[in-house]
Protein backbone atom coordinates (compact mmCIF):
# COMPACT_ATOMS: atom_id res chain seq x y z
CA UNK A 1 0.00 0.00 0.00
CA UNK A 2 1.05 3.48 -0.72
CA UNK A 3 2.59 4.83 2.46
CA UNK A 4 0.65 8.04 2.24
CA UNK A 5 -2.68 6.22 1.98
CA UNK A 6 -1.55 4.04 4.83
CA UNK A 7 -0.79 7.11 6.89
CA UNK A 8 -4.20 8.59 6.25
CA UNK A 9 -6.13 5.36 6.69
CA UNK A 10 -4.19 4.74 9.89
CA UNK A 11 -5.52 7.99 11.25
CA UNK A 12 -9.08 7.05 10.41
CA UNK A 13 -9.03 3.51 11.78
CA UNK A 14 -7.51 4.89 14.96
CA UNK A 15 -10.22 7.53 15.19
CA UNK A 16 -12.90 4.92 14.67
CA UNK A 17 -11.55 2.75 17.47
CA UNK A 18 -11.22 5.74 19.76
CA UNK A 19 -14.81 6.73 19.14
CA UNK A 20 -15.88 3.15 19.85
CA UNK A 21 -14.24 3.45 23.25
CA UNK A 22 -15.84 6.81 23.90
CA UNK A 23 -19.23 5.33 23.12
CA UNK A 24 -18.82 2.67 25.76
CA UNK A 25 -18.09 5.22 28.47
CA UNK A 26 -20.84 7.50 27.20
CA UNK A 27 -23.39 4.73 27.56
CA UNK A 28 -22.02 3.91 30.97
CA UNK A 29 -22.59 7.50 32.03
CA UNK A 30 -26.33 7.00 31.89
CA UNK A 31 -26.55 3.49 33.26
CA UNK A 32 -27.51 2.59 36.76
CA UNK A 33 -24.52 2.68 39.05
CA UNK A 34 -23.36 -0.44 40.81
CA UNK A 35 -22.10 1.12 44.02
CA UNK A 36 -23.76 -0.19 47.13
CA UNK A 37 -24.21 2.44 49.81
CA UNK A 38 -23.35 0.31 52.71
CA UNK A 39 -24.48 1.70 56.01
CA UNK A 40 -27.65 3.06 54.41
CA UNK A 41 -28.60 -0.20 52.78
CA UNK A 42 -28.28 -2.23 55.93
CA UNK A 43 -31.98 -2.98 55.85
CA UNK A 44 -31.97 -4.38 52.34
CA UNK A 45 -28.55 -5.93 52.35
CA UNK A 46 -28.71 -9.65 51.69
CA UNK A 47 -25.91 -11.75 53.09
CA UNK A 48 -25.95 -15.28 51.83
CA UNK A 49 -26.94 -17.91 54.35
CA UNK A 50 -23.64 -19.67 54.20
CA UNK A 51 -21.54 -16.60 54.79
CA UNK A 52 -18.99 -17.35 57.49
CA UNK A 53 -18.67 -14.45 59.87
CA UNK A 54 -18.64 -15.35 63.52
CA UNK A 55 -18.64 -18.71 65.14
CA UNK A 56 -21.44 -19.10 67.61
CA UNK A 57 -23.07 -21.77 69.63
CA UNK A 58 -26.84 -21.86 69.34
CA UNK A 59 -28.68 -22.04 72.62
CA UNK A 60 -32.34 -22.88 72.91
CA UNK A 61 -34.93 -21.19 75.10
CA UNK A 62 -33.90 -23.28 78.10
CA UNK A 63 -30.39 -21.94 77.76
CA UNK A 64 -29.14 -25.29 76.57
CA UNK A 65 -26.62 -26.03 73.90
CA UNK A 66 -25.45 -29.21 72.23
CA UNK A 67 -21.75 -29.16 72.96
CA UNK A 68 -20.48 -32.22 74.75
CA UNK A 69 -17.03 -30.70 75.25
CA UNK A 70 -15.46 -33.51 73.28
CA UNK A 71 -12.77 -31.19 71.92
CA UNK A 72 -12.86 -32.49 68.37
CA UNK A 73 -13.28 -29.01 66.97
CA UNK A 74 -10.32 -27.82 69.01
CA UNK A 75 -8.12 -30.57 67.64
CA UNK A 76 -9.23 -29.97 64.10
CA UNK A 77 -8.64 -26.29 64.06
CA UNK A 78 -5.46 -25.55 62.10
CA UNK A 79 -4.79 -22.33 63.97
CA UNK A 80 -5.46 -23.20 67.57
CA UNK A 81 -8.33 -20.78 67.58
CA UNK A 82 -10.65 -22.77 69.79
CA UNK A 83 -10.07 -23.54 73.45
CA UNK A 84 -12.50 -25.94 75.08
CA UNK A 85 -12.26 -26.40 78.81
CA UNK A 86 -14.43 -28.86 80.63
CA UNK A 87 -15.19 -30.07 84.14
CA UNK A 88 -15.92 -33.58 85.28
CA UNK A 89 -19.26 -33.73 87.00
CA UNK A 90 -21.11 -36.56 88.53
CA UNK A 91 -24.59 -37.24 87.28
CA UNK A 92 -27.46 -38.50 89.43
CA UNK A 93 -26.87 -42.09 88.56
CA UNK A 94 -23.32 -41.81 89.67
CA UNK A 95 -21.59 -41.74 86.33
CA UNK A 96 -18.86 -39.29 85.62
CA UNK A 97 -19.64 -36.94 82.81
CA UNK A 98 -17.74 -34.26 81.06
CA UNK A 99 -19.42 -30.89 81.11
CA UNK A 100 -18.47 -27.84 79.11
CA UNK A 101 -16.98 -25.12 81.20
CA UNK A 102 -15.74 -22.58 78.72
CA UNK A 103 -15.79 -22.53 74.96
CA UNK A 104 -13.49 -19.79 73.80
CA UNK A 105 -13.06 -18.81 70.19
CA UNK A 106 -10.61 -16.21 68.93
CA UNK A 107 -12.03 -14.12 66.12
CA UNK A 108 -8.57 -12.76 65.47
CA UNK A 109 -6.87 -15.98 64.47
CA UNK A 110 -9.77 -17.81 62.84
CA UNK A 111 -9.28 -18.34 59.13
CA UNK A 112 -12.91 -19.39 58.57
CA UNK A 113 -11.99 -22.78 57.19
CA UNK A 114 -15.18 -24.28 58.56
CA UNK A 115 -13.39 -27.42 59.77
CA UNK A 116 -14.65 -27.05 63.31
CA UNK A 117 -18.25 -26.87 62.13
CA UNK A 118 -18.11 -29.83 59.79
CA UNK A 119 -16.26 -32.04 62.23
CA UNK A 120 -18.38 -31.37 65.28
CA UNK A 121 -20.30 -34.57 65.96
CA UNK A 122 -23.15 -32.85 67.76
CA UNK A 123 -23.58 -29.86 65.47
CA UNK A 124 -23.12 -27.59 68.39
CA UNK A 125 -21.46 -24.71 66.59
CA UNK A 126 -22.28 -22.72 63.50
CA UNK A 127 -21.18 -19.67 61.65
CA UNK A 128 -23.58 -16.78 61.60
CA UNK A 129 -24.03 -13.90 59.20
CA UNK A 130 -23.08 -11.02 61.38
CA UNK A 131 -20.30 -9.60 59.28
CA UNK A 132 -19.82 -6.32 61.08
CA UNK A 133 -16.95 -7.58 63.12
CA UNK A 134 -14.84 -4.45 63.43
CA UNK A 135 -14.09 -3.35 66.96
CA UNK A 136 -11.81 -1.02 68.82
CA UNK A 137 -10.31 -3.43 71.26
CA UNK A 138 -8.42 -6.53 70.36
CA UNK A 139 -9.38 -8.29 73.56
CA UNK A 140 -12.99 -8.27 72.38
CA UNK A 141 -11.97 -10.63 69.61
CA UNK A 142 -11.67 -13.45 72.08
CA UNK A 143 -15.13 -14.65 72.87
CA UNK A 144 -16.75 -17.17 75.06
CA UNK A 145 -19.43 -18.89 73.04
CA UNK A 146 -21.32 -20.78 75.70
CA UNK A 147 -23.56 -18.58 77.75
CA UNK A 148 -23.20 -18.35 81.49
CA UNK A 149 -25.31 -20.93 83.24
CA UNK A 150 -26.04 -22.85 80.09
CA UNK A 151 -25.96 -26.59 80.06
CA UNK A 152 -25.96 -29.51 77.74
CA UNK A 153 -29.25 -30.32 76.12
CA UNK A 154 -30.52 -33.65 77.39
CA UNK A 155 -30.99 -36.17 74.70
CA UNK A 156 -33.81 -38.64 74.62
CA UNK A 157 -32.02 -40.84 72.23
CA UNK A 158 -28.67 -40.42 70.67
CA UNK A 159 -29.26 -39.10 67.22
CA UNK A 160 -26.65 -39.31 64.61
CA UNK A 161 -26.03 -36.04 62.86
CA UNK A 162 -27.49 -36.63 59.43
CA UNK A 163 -25.15 -35.24 56.79
CA UNK A 164 -23.47 -32.77 59.08
CA UNK A 165 -22.14 -30.63 56.31
CA UNK A 166 -25.57 -30.15 54.85
CA UNK A 167 -26.91 -29.11 58.18
CA UNK A 168 -24.10 -26.76 58.76
CA UNK A 169 -24.87 -25.07 55.51
CA UNK A 170 -28.15 -23.85 56.86
CA UNK A 171 -27.40 -21.93 59.99
CA UNK A 172 -31.01 -20.96 60.53
CA UNK A 173 -31.95 -24.54 61.19
CA UNK A 174 -31.40 -25.40 64.77
CA UNK A 175 -30.24 -28.89 65.50
CA UNK A 176 -33.53 -29.85 67.07
CA UNK A 177 -33.36 -33.07 68.96
CA UNK A 178 -36.84 -33.34 70.36
CA UNK A 179 -39.95 -33.66 68.29
CA UNK A 180 -41.90 -30.85 69.89
CA UNK A 181 -38.95 -28.54 69.89
CA UNK A 182 -38.57 -28.74 66.16
CA UNK A 183 -41.37 -26.29 65.54
CA UNK A 184 -40.33 -23.55 67.85
CA UNK A 185 -36.68 -24.05 67.42
CA UNK A 186 -35.93 -21.70 64.50
CA UNK A 187 -37.60 -18.73 66.09
CA UNK A 188 -36.17 -19.32 69.47
CA UNK A 189 -32.81 -19.66 67.92
CA UNK A 190 -33.07 -16.42 66.09
CA UNK A 191 -33.94 -14.57 69.23
CA UNK A 192 -31.04 -16.35 70.76
CA UNK A 193 -28.71 -15.24 68.08
CA UNK A 194 -29.66 -11.66 68.48
CA UNK A 195 -29.19 -11.57 72.19
CA UNK A 196 -25.85 -13.30 71.92
CA UNK A 197 -24.78 -10.84 69.27
CA UNK A 198 -25.60 -7.98 71.50
CA UNK A 199 -23.52 -9.45 74.19
CA UNK A 200 -20.65 -9.84 71.86
CA UNK A 201 -20.82 -6.23 70.96
Amino acid sequence: MNPFIKYISGIFTALKALIGGLRVTWRELWRKKVTMQYPENRETLVISDRWRSELHMPHDENNEHACTACGICMNNCPNGTIKVTSNMEETEDGKKKRVLDKYVWDYGTCTFCNLCVITCPSDAIQFNNDFEGAMYDRSKLIRQLNKPGSKLREKEKVEKPAAPAKEAAKPTEAPAKKEEKKEIAPEAKKADEKSSDKENK
Partner: peptide, 30 residues
Protein backbone atom coordinates in the same frame (compact mmCIF):
# COMPACT_ATOMS: atom_id res chain seq x y z
CA UNK B 1 -18.43 -9.20 41.48
CA UNK B 2 -21.13 -11.31 39.88
CA UNK B 3 -18.91 -14.38 40.04
CA UNK B 4 -18.02 -13.61 43.62
CA UNK B 5 -21.70 -13.39 44.49
CA UNK B 6 -22.14 -16.92 43.22
CA UNK B 7 -19.15 -18.06 45.27
CA UNK B 8 -20.47 -16.29 48.27
CA UNK B 9 -23.81 -18.05 48.08
CA UNK B 10 -22.28 -21.46 47.37
CA UNK B 11 -19.26 -21.51 49.60
CA UNK B 12 -19.74 -18.79 52.16
CA UNK B 13 -16.61 -16.96 51.07
CA UNK B 14 -15.86 -14.63 48.23
CA UNK B 15 -12.12 -14.77 47.66
CA UNK B 16 -10.97 -17.52 49.99
CA UNK B 17 -13.77 -19.80 48.99
CA UNK B 18 -12.85 -22.84 51.04
CA UNK B 19 -15.03 -25.11 49.00
CA UNK B 20 -13.37 -28.32 47.93
CA UNK B 21 -12.81 -30.88 50.63
CA UNK B 22 -11.26 -34.28 50.43
CA UNK B 23 -13.86 -36.49 48.80
CA UNK B 24 -16.03 -33.79 47.34
CA UNK B 25 -17.16 -30.31 48.17
CA UNK B 26 -18.08 -28.74 51.46
CA UNK B 27 -21.71 -27.86 50.78
CA UNK B 28 -24.16 -28.82 48.14
CA UNK B 29 -24.93 -26.08 45.63
CA UNK B 30 -27.75 -23.77 46.68
Amino acid sequence: EHVLDIFDKTCGGRLIVNYNVIGGVMNDIY
